[in-house]
């Protein structure tokens, strides 16, 4: 299942897609699989599985802590494929990953193994198309989505080139800053989405900062997908009891899913 399949449905329903992010291996490997199932059960349209990394420079405190916990728990890159295999089938499963982990595994081998596990593609926050020659080739060979990011600081030329290199959707980083739930969504986001639309027909996902259904509804008014990460991770950071975390995640996802349908 590819991102395009989901966006065909959500566009027909005249609504934005809900994208949920969780690092694999957090809070544990088994519970990350469970958590993804919970998100899908409660209305997530697409899943981003993060690969925990020692130096996550795009991430704020919540996702850093989650990654640290997964790594302390012994997470290995290849376990991403187990997670993908366990949850694939119902909605597209993309992986969001820092580039060194893919390069280390081997770009071609990673694409092959992730595709074989049912993965739909990669979101690459620290890989720009200018540096992505190997990934462009591997994603073609294995028919994977490649989601690059645009930002408020991107020039129109860069937005055009980035969108042209993307497949599946384009990720609009709506605030100049790292990941983290914010009390107000970004004022820069609608303008960025509009600028990006001028250069592409691909759906545009908007990420960074959404924490509840109200904010999801706000973002859904102009974006094709609402991407939620830190708030989801927060369900498990705010309690040591994993079942409580699962319950919080079910409630949050229900709220967010209602938000994108408002």
């Amino acid at each position: 299942m590819k991102s395009a399949d989901t966006f065909a449905v959500t566009r027909a329903e005249h609504r934005a897609a809900l994208v949920g992010y969780l690092p694999a291996g957090f809070p544990t490997l088994a519970d990350s699989i469970k958590a993804i199932d919970i998100m899908i059960d409660h209305g997530a349209d697409l899943i981003e599985v993060g690969i925990p990394y020692s130096d996550p420079v795009m991430d704020g405190p919540a996702i850093q802590r989650a990654a640290d916990r997964a790594l302390a728990g012994g997470f290995r890159t290849r376990q991403l494929f187990e997670v993908a295999e366990a949850v694939a089938g119902r909605v597209p499963i993309l992986s969001m990953t820092y580039w060194n982990l893919v390069e280390r595994y081997g770009v071609e081998a990673f694409a092959r193994d992730f595709a074989a596990a049912g993965g739909a593609g990669l979101i690459t926050p620290d890989l720009i198309p200018d540096e992505a020659e190997d990934w462009l080739a591997a994603s073609e060979a294995h028919d994977l989505d490649r989601v690059f990011l645009v930002a408020p600081s991107s020039t129109d030329d860069r937005i055009a080139a980035t969108a042209a290199a993307s497949r599946g959707f384009v990720y609009a980083q709506s605030v100049m800053g790292v990941t983290g739930a914010r009390t107000a969504t970004s004022a820069a986001a609608p303008a960025l989405v509009e600028r990006t639309r001028a250069h592409t027909d691909l759906p545009i996902g908007v990420g960074l900062g959404v924490r509840d259904g109200d904010q999801a509804a706000e973002v859904a008014a102009y974006g094709d997908a609402v991407i939620v990460g830190s708030a989801i991770v927060g369900c498990y950071l705010s309690t040591d009891d994993v079942p409580t975390g699962h319950q919080r995640l079910a409630d949050l996802t229900t709220d967010l899913a209602a938000g994108v349908r408002r």
Partner: peptide
């Protein structure tokens, strides 16, 4: 022009920093 010395260097950063 992209900041490579042979296979080394380059820019592996968020797009948000490219303008700067």
């Amino acid at each position: 022009l992209k900041g490579h010395w042979g296979e080394f260097g380059g820019r592996f950063v968020p797009e948000a920093l490219i303008a700067a």
